[in-house]
Design a protein around this nucleic acid. Structure first.
Length: 896
RNA sequence: GCCCGCUUAGCUCAGUGGUAGAGCACACGCUUCACACGCGUGGGGUCGUAGGUUCAAAUCCUACAGCGGGCACCA
């Protein structure tokens, strides 16, 4: 057998994925059991412009673990992939390319520009999909969707038209977030609030007409005063009570504006008087409507001043205008003061440009209406179930409870065009197609609305649209609702909540049962990874360095935790992969005559102790890992697998089996022992497969005896592959507590002797004799029957088991559980002082523990109020310690 | 202003009302016939601070501190 000593991940990663794909293993149709339960995940579609980052890798790993696990359990499993057209990002990407050619999208015109975007998408878009292959993502490529597919476009129009018919979508004038750089409206969720330190608050004085009084207003944006149409004060504010209804003369502009009383105004803040600019501030907009104040637009979509701002200002940038306004106020003697002031500003989440609130005609969706069903569902039934529940259920609920209208229209070209047409008179016709619109309008002379929809509008439909909605397709019937949504927390509002809205509204059922929110991966300093900071860790580089499987298992155990990335944890799982490789290498090097699935025949009670033990450990591992995956506790699942494989299987089972497995002479006993290690390995590989698909497949296929017999019945027709093997089920009847405690006794014995060897500086190669004493016959039997194995593990030339270890003075000793003890005779080698010190330390430790326990038992309240079994347990421990202490004392006395 | 999370070994993180855990790092010893990406042994924490509840608190409650997040507002 020529198996390399070190595992090379590239070997396994090169071939298996394309074979799985070619054999149709990723499609739910591979499952031939029509009765099988269904398991569905739709991927959060990455942006077509995107590249794989750690966040994706984390989400994809979680989804793949779940998909592979449920697939191995025989569920009809669909993990549906796809991409998002990513409106602004994509448009800007292509515009950048055009700029290099010296042209703008306007030079090309809308149609030609869109042709360019599609061409770009075909050529460069979706690199991330190839990167997903590298990850091992078991997605059904045959069902891959793009949010601008024909089918999804139909879904978008259907959504829009139905909402319009319900009057939940409307067109109207509103104050929206405008990005002066991207030249489009944005929803509230696409705007970030940023704390700014170096702001200023300007105190401006407005003269009261017919009086020499002045009203001072405080503002952070003096330039907007050009659009002021009122000043508001609190109705409770006595300072201004007599001014309500008075008229002010707006400086510079010369406009006469009223003083109004409005409850919004906080008399404690600033001067208690607020300038009102209805066209450029959300609160002022609302106040303006309450008091019928005119809206004067003084800033345009390029964030420059309009002609309405006055000839001096028209065309100036908003910040230039600010300086000029302040200078004029100073000149007029109306600038009271300027103070430093911290305030936050709104930025475009994409390009960081300061947002300009702008009054314009847009399309809106009444989210509060659409959000009612999700709000009821989470309130009444706690659905969907969030993992982790805290804090996300609350975050989600609070957002749904306070929904505002969603600004849908975007002044872009790339995206779903709004299905609204206008006739020459300006009448609007919303329809599923231009033909329908024409029919409704009774004319062919229609112009379609030039705007497109927010990218998230099509995303909101993702779970249903990808499965065929608005048609009632077999896929929709079969795979909806989906089982779980795995995503990052920053799109709970943008996406998760909205999918619940559309799912409940259009499919009549929640979009998913569970929502798994992954943690955030920071750099090693705790900083968020970002392109601009250049501190991102490239998953592909980590794959190259440590292998995909090692990276995946680290990501899986990160799960919902915020964590600082460091390569050392990946390195340790790279080592784990190598451990698996070498354990398999050992099994395969000794596999002549062995077959997977054999070696464990007959009544388990007749099996050797270590075989009963590993079988029991395997059952508990299977049980715990399955439970952990079902509870989305991937960290626990990984820990359990790691320790089972490394500690139980490699450190102990293989070592305990070694003599039998490596026997020089072929024999049925040797074949059986070899089959057993092979069979346990095979089960372990299946348990590990969802986390580490590549190495497990690579090794599994090499095991003698694997084939159709290991496949889940639903896949029995398929080519053998571990990904279609049955996930192990727990066989409770094979859990053997007695075997576990007996092996624990042997493990303790071996560890104590090794400790003695190490502390006494006995050369590793030097054989020792050991004497084991146990008063209890059953324990003696365990040591006696294991004496060959014990001898091997501690490098003993002789293991003698008796009722006592005898009185040999020149021996190092240790006290074991169950009243047993072990002695290592060290004729002429022992340093009595050193041995006394070693035992003395141990005695001290026991004494301290006993004192603590006895104090507790002496507490009447404890004995009276603690559960009886707890008290009994403590008494047991005290008795055990007492026994050990007695034995230690005798040993020490013998040494004296 | 409102809401929330985190604080455990040098590092990254688990965990839990009843004997403090892992990996890495560290120390010592090992060419032990699967593996030095390994084997064996060992050291290391008053579980952020102060109170409270309890027979028992690192775990539950309260306050505080530090770090971080979300929402609202910001004239």
């Amino acid at each position: 057998m020529e198996i390399p000593k070190a595992y090379d991940p590239k070997l396994a990663e090169a071939s298996h994925y394309s074979r799985w794909e070619a054999q149709g293993c990723f499609a739910p149709e591979v499952n031939r059991d029509p009765q099988a339960p269904v398991y569905t995940i739709v991927i959060p579609p990455p942006n077509v412009t995107g590249n794989l980052h750690m966040g994706h890798a984390l989400q994809h790993t979680i989804m793949d673990v779940l998909a592979r696990y449920h697939r191995m359990l025989g569920r009809r499993t669909l993990w549906l992939p796809g991409m998002d057209h990513a409106g602004i990002s994509t448009q800007i990407q292509v515009e950048k390319l055009l700029k290099k050619e010296g042209i703008s999208r306007h030079d090309l015109g809308r149609e030609k520009f869109l042709e360019r975007v599609w061409a770009w998408k075909e050529q460069y878009g979706g690199e991330i999909l190839n990167q997903m292959r590298r990850e091992g993502a078991s997605v059904d490529w045959s069902r891959a969707r793009f949010t601008m597919d024909e089918g999804l476009t139909r879904a978008v129009r259907e959504f829009f038209v139905r909402m319009y018919e319900k009057k939940w979508i409307y067109r109207g004038e509103g104050l929206i977030n405008w990005c002066p750089k991207d030249q489009t409206a944005l929803s509230d969720l696409e705007v970030d609030k940023v704390e700014k330190k170096d702001g200023k608050l300007y105190y401006l004085q407005y003269p009261v007409m017919g009086s020499d009084r002045r009203v001072t207003v405080a503002t952070t944006r003096p330039e907007t005063m050009l659009g002021d149409t009122g000043v508001a004060v609190s109705p409770k504010d006595e300072r201004y009570a007599d001014l309500v209804g008075a008229t002010l003369l707006l400086p510079i502009v010369g406009r006469e504006i009223p003083v109004v009383a409005d409850g919004f105004v906080d008399p404690e803040f600033g001067t208690g008087a607020v300038k009102v600019t209805p066209a450029h501030d959300p609160n002022d907009y609302a106040m303006g409507r309450r008091h019928d104040l005119p809206q004067v637009k003084v800033i345009d979509q390029h964030a420059r001043m309009t002609p309405e701002a006055g000839a001096e200002f028209a065309g100036l940038d908003r910040y230039e205008a600010r300086e000029l306004v302040v200078a004029k106020f100073a000149e007029l003697g109306l600038l009271e003061k300027i103070v430093d002031y911290e305030f936050s500003i709104s930025q475009c989440a994409r390009c960081r440009t300061v947002i300009e609130p702008l009054l314009s005609v847009q399309w809106f969706l009444r989210q509060a209406a659409l959000g009612q069903q999700p709000l009821d569902l989470i309130g009444e039934r706690h659905e969907p179930r969030f993992v982790p529940e805290v804090p996300y259920e609350k975050v989600y609920t609070n957002w749904l409870a306070g929904l505002h209208d969603w600004t849908l229209s975007r002044q872009l070209w790339w995206g779903h065009r709004i299905p609204a047409w206008y006739d020459e008179a300006g009448n609007v016709f919303v329809a599923r197609s231009e033909e329908d619109a024409r029919a409704a309008a009774g004319t062919n002379e229609l112009t379609q609305d030039p705007d497109v929809l927010d990218t998230w509008f099509s995303s909101a439909l993702w779970p249903i649209s990808t499965l065929g909605w608005p048609d009632d397709t077999p896929d929709l019937k079969t795979f909806y609702p989906t089982s779980v949504l795995v995503t990052a927390r920053d799109i709970i509002f943008l996406w998760v909540a909205r999918m619940m809205m559309t799912g409940l509204e259009f499919a009549g059922e929640k979009a998913f049962d569970d929502v798994f929110i992954t943690g955030t991966i920071f750099d090693k300093h705790g900083q968020r990874m970002s392109k601009s900071k250049g501190n991102g860790v490239d998953p592909l580089a980590v794959f190259d360095k440590y292998g995909v499987d090692a990276t995946r298992i680290v990501l899986a155990s990160i799960g919902t935790t915020d964590t600082r990335w460091n390569d050392t944890q990946v390195e340790s799982y790279r080592n784990f992969a190598n451990k698996i490789w070498n354990a398999a290498r050992f099994c395969l090097m000794n596999s002549e005559g062995a077959r997977v699935g054999e070696g464990f025949e007959g009544d388990p009670q007749t099996w050797a102790l270590h075989d009963r033990w590993i079988t029991s450990r395997l059952q508990k591992t299977t049980r715990d890992v399955s439970k952990a995956i079902e509870a989305y506790d991937f960290h626990a699942a990984v820990q359990t697998l790691y320790h089972f494989f490394w500690d139980d299987f490699c450190d102990w089972y293989i070592e305990l089996s070694k003599a039998d497995v490596t026997a020089a002479e072929a024999s049925p006993a040797r074949d059986a022992a070899r089959s057993r290690v092979l069979s346990v390995l095979e089960q372990a590989l299946r348990l590990l497969h969802p986390f580490m698909p590549f190495i497990t497949e690579e090794l599994w296929l090499r095991l003698p005896g694997v084939g159709a017999g290991q496949l889940h019945p639903a896949y029995s027709h398929a080519e053998p592959t571990i990904m279609l093997a049955a996930y192990p089920l727990t066989r409770e009847e094979l859990i053997d507590e007695r075997a576990e405690s007996e092996i624990a006794a042997i493990v303790e014995l071996v560890s104590r002797v090794r400790n003695i060897r190490s502390e006494m500086s006995i050369k590793p190669g030097e054989p020792v004799r050991i004497l084991v004493g146990a008063a209890e016959a059953s324990l003696r039997a365990v040591f006696e029957s294991g004496s060959q194995q014990i001898a091997r593990l501690v490098r003993a030339s002789e293991v003698t088991v008796g009722e006592t270890t005898g009185g040999a003075r020149a021996a190092a000793r240790a006290v074991l559980a169950g009243g047993a003890e072990v002695a290592v005779p060290l004729e002429g080698l022992i340093d009595f002082a050193q041995e006394r010190e070693r035992l003395g330390k141990e005695q001290e430790k026991l004494g301290a523990e006993a004192a603590k326990l006895e104090a507790q038992l002496a507490n009447e309240n404890f004995v009276a109020r603690a559960p009886a079994e707890k008290v009994e347990e403590l008494r047991q421990r005290v008795a055990d310690i007492a026994q050990r202490t007695t034995a230690l004392t005798q040993t020490l006395e013998a040494l004296a």
